[in-house]
Design a protein around this nucleic acid. Sequence first.
DNA 1: CTAGGTGCAAAAGGTTTGCGGTTAA
DNA 2: TTAACCGCAAACCTTTTGCACCTAG
Lengths: 153, 153
Amino acid sequence: MATKTKNATDETDGLNERLAHSGLRLTPQRRHVHDVLMEHMDHPTADQVFLRAKDSMPEISMATVYNTLDALVKCDMVRQVNVDRGATRYCANMKPHSHFYCDDCGSVYDVLQTISTSEANFKLPRGFKLRNIDTNIHGLCPDCTNKSRNRTN
Amino acid sequence: MATKTKNATDETDGLNERLAHSGLRLTPQRRHVHDVLMEHMDHPTADQVFLRAKDSMPEISMATVYNTLDALVKCDMVRQVNVDRGATRYCANMKPHSHFYCDDCGSVYDVLQTISTSEANFKLPRGFKLRNIDTNIHGLCPDCTNKSRNRTN
DNA sequence: CTAGGTGCAAAAGGTTTGCGGTTAA
DNA sequence: TTAACCGCAAACCTTTTGCACCTAG
């Protein structure tokens, strides 16, 4: 039924190097969680990652998923996405991009454009050190645009 | 000691109209919570709003603070700020602006510039309806920049 | 009279932590 | 051998909910 996942190896993504660079080890759990995130780039919550990871690693625990996600964030292999009150979402797409958040259904989409690729130059007050800019676009996704059209028209 | 707060009235901020427009009433609690948010625009969490509001309205409850904040958000008198895993922060500054988030100490500052005032033109795929763009600048605040300089040099 | 609002206490997420046991340099 | 890591369960923090009472239109 389910398509056989071909796991990434360190040659393909350099996960080991990235972890090592932050003084962290590459464990089977970390490899697996990263693979899970790479397989469907749909911005899952920690809980969703946990459920997916369990499919082929039944012993893995929620705590390990959280620890692992933190480790992957720390070594810059995963981004956290915080757009609303709900659970933090995780994103393994490390190419610069923004997120579109549907205010109606809460789904998150990548938008392949960032404020740094556009010609914005933010002037920060003296002493502030810029690390990166996080752009969250709020609006309605195609599905919800249709639904709301059908309601109001 | 503490400066006497001069409460805003509806003539000054039009809170009543805004609430009414969303089918909501202006209650003493809503007036007070909004005043509290206006007094120090330091992006407090719901809990901090609760503590400050209690100072001059001891009977107010946490649930009311949450309800009220939701009401104020709904009628566009307050913005929610979600930048990290922590509690949602609230911001009564409704002039378009971005937020600077210090990755070290977690404090939030307003930056009087937005992606829409800069010349960005986001191209969204067909069907997506843009409502607004939320820009969060991550980095180090002046205090933490100094601290980290002292540690590493 | 009734819908909307308040306050309380309990519940429901979501995330973190403490700890005993395991594993890899 | 020792520091890093895992899994479990409990704790914790933030937010929501159910309900009885109250109040303004």
